[in-house]
């Protein structure tokens, strides 16, 4: 028995939505990072599924690029977080409210 490709696409879309909503709702910056990772990995799942359905290796190759980019993004993001929250108690986004208008 084989699972139709569209199921994977639906799962990926749901994962992406969870990530997007989490990013907008959660206030801890580290959790927001995880949500970004969730979104990127949902895209990876979409790429692999389409590559399977289209019998094209290009989509699978794309996943490697995305993985590398995601890793680079997290490195920079964590660096920024450490630089900012060194002087603060917790990593809560609501504490950052100097810039507004």
């Amino acid at each position: 028995m084989s699972i139709p490709g569209s199921w994977f696409l639906v799962v990926a879309a749901m994962l992406f939505t969870v990530g997007a909503i989490g990013l907008l709702v959660r206030r801890n910056v580290l959790v927001m990072f995880m949500c970004v990772e969730l979104m990127l990995n949902a895209v990876n799942l979409t790429f692999v599924t389409f590559a399977r359905m289209l019998h094209d290796v290009g989509g699978q190759a794309a996943v490697f690029f995305v993985l590398v980019v995601a890793a680079a993004e997290v490195v920079v993001g964590l660096g920024i977080i450490v630089a900012i929250f060194r002087r603060r108690a917790g990593a809560t986004a609501d504490d950052l409210h100097m810039l507004k208008g």
């Binding site: 696409l9 990127l40 289209l54 980019v69």
Partner: peptide, 14 residues
């Protein structure tokens, strides 16, 4: 926004 853009690429590819 990068993740959204990337998802757009994946759907266009599909």
């Amino acid at each position: 926004s990068s993740a959204i853009f990337l998802y757009g690429i994946a759907l266009t590819y599909g």
